[in-house]
């Protein structure tokens, strides 16, 4: 497979996953705000700060309100991390590999993009935000389903899965952090009924609520963190993402499990092993925010290694 093509499939999947997770972010904040008492400070502003795009936001949208933040995160084409921008990038990548992916996949990316770009989308998000975002999440799920059902599970599919899972692991870690760190109103809320409600909202936003219940029954911060970080089988947990990304890399290279034949395999193997043997209490004691921060840095390192190993168009020696 051409390096450029592998790269595009990888990014097409990352951007779709990113767009889906933006919808989940908005969802989690909306729920947190609804559950909080009125006097608590502006949560939407905290969300913008968490995205790291505060300055650009203030310049174009002014005050952070639910409506302006949703506009910024959904439709703002100047925000490279808006749903609309991500879908545009996903579609540009898809367009450049149309001959490799199935036409059903292309059609789904194209339809999703046209849906978000349509003039009616803006009205819908104002009138019925939940409806809009859940519809959008379904469009993303449909893409993943179509991909699984219509594309040969060969090299290209595996690169796509690596891209999707790296993005998902990153976003799950950030969403935990938003609840745990960014939106923590006051220390005395910890352990209060509000706190439980918020952890439940986080689980719901990650489509993890029912699956969590089967595992732990009661909502506790420790168990929620354990479930979302360390669960071996839940498809949005950080550990699951790494296990499957590693699996895909080994299918691509053919190197046996527990060995590595390149830097990317080494990076993901090491990071996955850390999660395999982690203890949630230790992690919480040492500081969850710091832990998640470090995880994201290591995950970026893995992403860079994938690029260097498979996609970089290195000059050929003369």
């Amino acid at each position: 497979m051409l390096s450029r093509v592998a790269n595009s499939i990888y990014w097409m999947n990352r951007y779709i996953e990113r767009a889906e997770n933006i919808a989940r972010f908005v969802d989690v904040v909306r729920h947190l705000v609804l559950d909080l008492p009125d006097q608590v400070s502006n949560q939407w502003e905290s969300l913008v700060e968490a995205t790291g795009d505060s300055e650009a936001f203030k310049k174009r949208h002014g005050e952070a309100t639910e409506a302006s933040v949703i506009q910024f995160l959904t439709f703002d084409r100047e925000n490279p991390n808006s749903i609309c921008s991500c879908l545009w990038s996903a579609r540009e990548n898809a367009r450049s590999v149309r001959e490799v992916i199935s036409s059903e996949m292309w059609e789904q990316v194209n339809r999703s993009y046209l849906m978000v770009k349509s003039p009616q989308a803006c009205d819908r998000v104002d009138d019925e935000p939940s409806e809009f975002f859940s519809h959008f999440k379904k469009a993303c799920h449909l893409f993943v389903g179509i991909t699984d059902a219509t594309m040969t599970h060969g090299e290209g599919w595996h690169f796509g899965r690596v891209g999707r899972l790296i993005e998902r692991a990153d976003k799950t870690s950030r969403m935990i952090d938003v609840k745990y760190f960014v939106l923590l109103p006051r220390i005395d809320y910890v352990g209060s009924p509000y706190d439980s409600l918020q952890w439940a909202a986080l689980l719901k936003s990650l489509s993890a609520f029912e699956m969590y219940r089967k595992q732990f029954h009661h909502i506790s911060p420790k168990h929620v963190a354990e479930f979302l970080i360390l669960d071996r089988q839940f498809p949005r947990s950080m550990r699951y993402c790494l296990i499957k990304a590693e699996e895909s890399l080994h299918v691509i290279t053919g190197s046996p499990p527990t060995t590595f034949s390149n830097h990317a395999e080494r990076c993901v193997g090491r990071l996955r092993a850390e999660l395999d043997y982690a203890d949630i209490q230790e992690t919480l004691d040492a500081g969850l925010h710091e832990y998640l921060d470090e995880f994201q840095i290591k995950l970026n390192g893995f992403g860079d290694a994938v690029y260097e190993t498979f996609f970089a168009l290195l000059p050929v020696p003369a």
Binding site: M1, L2, S3, R4, V5, A6, R98, E99, V100, S103, E155, F159, I252, F310, F311, L313, V316
Partner: peptide
């Protein structure tokens, strides 16, 4: 469309390179 229908690679100039007297494409 034509590459897809024929089941062959669609390449850009930057995917190709001349090496050892042949035209080669850069793959994974």
């Amino acid at each position: 469309f034509l590459a897809q229908q024929m089941g062959v690679e669609l390449v850009e100039g930057r995917d190709l390179v001349v090496s050892d007297g042949f035209v080669m494409m850069r793959t994974t």
